[in-house]
Design a protein around this nucleic acid. Sequence first.
RNA 1: CGGGGCGUAGCGCAGCCUGGUAGCGCAUCUGGUUUGGGACCAGAGGGUCGGGUGUUCGAAUCACCCCGCCCCGACCA
Length: 573
Amino acid sequence: MRYSKLFSPTLRDTPADAEVVSHQLLLRAGFIRRVTSGVYDYLPLGLRVLRNIENIVREEMNRAGAQELLMPMVQPSEFWQKSGRWDKYGPELLRFKDRHGHESCLGPTHEEVICDLVSRELKSYKQLPMNLYQIQNKFRDEIRPRFGLMRGREFVMKDAYSFHANAECLAKEYQNMFDTYHRIFNRLGLKFRAVEADNGSIGGSASHEFHVLAESGEDLITHCSACDYAANVEKALSTPPSYQGIDAELGEVETPKKTAVEDVVSFLNVEPFTLLKTMIYVAVGGENEGQVVAACVRGTDNVQEIKLARAMGVDEVELASKEQLEAVGTVTGYAGPMSLHCPIYMDISLSDEVGLVAGANKYNFHITGLNISRDLSNITYVDLRETQVGDTCGKCGKGTMETSRGIEVGHIFELGTVYAKPMEVLFQNEQGKRDVATMGCYGIGVSRLMAAVVEQCNDDYGIMWPVNLAPFRISVITLGKSETAFAASEKIYNELLKQGVDVVWDDRKESPGVKFKDAELTGIPLRIVVGDRGLNNNALEIKTRWGDKAEASSDEVVNKALSMLAELQQENV
RNA sequence: CGGGGCGUAGCGCAGCCUGGUAGCGCAUCUGGUUUGGGACCAGAGGGUCGGGUGUUCGAAUCACCCCGCCCCGACCA
């Protein structure tokens, strides 16, 4: 490709509305442009990178025995009615009617469609197992799209669905995918971590997320310093430092305008862990919609809402309104577990704790000396608190928990029969009986990966694509306007083309600085500089995006560049 | 959905407070000089000042409404 013909609009200034580095650089380097909220154009360079990522994913999926197919973005409402998600899915599902008034939606995921397809064609256990995948655009009407490609509404996803005759077979494929994902993210040159995850609304049992480690990540993940336990904080198991309260008589104290934990604690001069934080939640979605409950943790802890929702058996919870608070007999800022008219979930770390301070359920008063087993009844102990740095590992019981930020780029699930059953994915088993297929599903955020890679691979000058992802591997930069430099460049360019290398020739009538800056900004791994100076000395500069330099004569430069490229590939930078 | 901020040329911004009919840098186009790190000179094009309504002799500027974008929050009990 000649740069003079390339549609690659780069920006000198960082667009003001881009916050994270991947968004800024992808915009500046001319890889993407915003169309509307959470929806982007992929310009030629951006598409090249996207395709490179896709192909690595594709190769590894194929190698793992999965088969690629392609399903539609538009899906009929009937499928979703059948699975039960038409009512469950919420506003993220973009629904619309066609000219005949037929209700449809844009696919945020494809369990329904794949189940429909497979249910029609699956007859016998002999056809199983099978793993089908696609790389396709998804649409989710996110509340808050942000950070460019990181959280878009329309995005590219690889989604795979496996079908099995039994759970053992599924477990095997799950492991296969687990290993495949490790290979994929390693080939992409990423620092990442697989963590145990909550299944979310998708349902099923086992589940792991794959996170690219980055400060800008939206997720908080945690791992043990001693063993291999790692999990999303949404479900992480850990033990907090143990505290022992001092038993006392139940009392009531006036705490005017003291609602925040810190205020109450300093006003009463007690330790923060003796405070019982009581939050009133209401269930959203599902059968128990509207149910109000109280969730109690220590003042030093936070309620992990996902854990609460799981304990309640609902999809989601949100904080109760003022009216809902009053309905269960409490008030804003002074909620406590005494004589509340709703179920109480208490974190297990509080079992039989004594000497606690809690809200008195009336304005400006707290109670002291609360003894849970003495003063409360009908409480349910569950794991509610969010794991904190320094907790003891819930798995090995030895190591301490550390946390880091992550960008979720992959998620695998053992679904079991949650979709196969309602969607009637049935087959005849070895005994000749009808059986429900057991499913797994495996996703990778392909376009998000593009952003995640940039988050990890950049410097002050721009993007530093790993060789295997770069839009072009080599940039031949012509300096000056001499005929000889131009002709020599063209020769090198053609030779590289002949060698099958993705090469761009910067033949523009621009100053050297502009060309160097653009090559750096767009992250081309290797550049060959062809100018009169180098030609006269018969020593052309070859430089990697990481700063390594070499020189070679005009005749040798192609071979030298190819060997340097091979080296970079070897190192998988 | 709540809170905050922003919307003026492709990008980055000034002008707004204190109304008088729009400006700077970069980018773009033309001509010329330049070519190993975002060149220089001369000239040029490009704006319904997000949209609407109102106040006013007069609105980018003031008021109200709407739209869009960005950030924060979904932790407060």
